Lab assay of single mutants.
Amino acid sequence: KWEEIAERLREEFNINPEEAREAVEKAGGNEEEARRIVKK
């Protein structure tokens, strides 16, 4: 599940997989929260 979210974030925000994974981890697997983290 987290991998899927990280993949979507990576494609959408054009970030590297590591950044995407970190955002999802910080968000506890919550996609909306992960998006907010990435946008900062």
Rank of each mutant, 00 (worst) to 15 (best):
V38E: 02
K40C: 10
E11M: 09
I15L: 10
I37R: 07
R8W: 02
K40P: 10
A23S: 05
I15A: 06
K39F: 02
W2S: 05
A27P: 01
E19I: 13
E33Q: 09
E31F: 14
P17E: 15
K1E: 13
A34G: 02
G29H: 03
V24G: 01
E33R: 08
F13Q: 08
E18G: 08
V24E: 03
K39D: 09
R21K: 11
A6V: 13
K39E: 13
K1N: 15
E32F: 08
A20N: 02
E22A: 10
K1T: 15
R35K: 09
K26G: 06
E7W: 03
R10S: 14
E18H: 12
K26N: 11
V38F: 00
I37L: 07
A34V: 02
E32N: 08
L9V: 05
N14W: 06
E22N: 12
E18T: 10
R36D: 11
A6N: 03
R35S: 04
V38H: 03
W2K: 06
R21V: 11
K1Q: 13
E25V: 12
E18V: 11
N16Q: 12
N14G: 15
R8E: 03
E7R: 14
E3F: 11
E11R: 10
I15H: 03
E18L: 11
E32C: 11
A23R: 00
E31C: 06
K26L: 09
E7M: 13
E7H: 13
N16K: 08
R21N: 09
E33T: 10
E11K: 14
I37H: 08
F13E: 09
N14I: 04
E12A: 03
E12H: 05
N30M: 07
V24P: 00
K39V: 15
E32S: 11
I5E: 03
E12M: 04
R10C: 09
K26C: 06
E11Q: 12
N30W: 07
E11W: 07
N14F: 10
I15G: 05
R8T: 04
E33Y: 02
V24Q: 01
E33K: 09
E11I: 08
E12L: 04
E18D: 14
E3W: 10
E32W: 06
I37K: 05
R8K: 13
E31S: 05
V38Q: 03
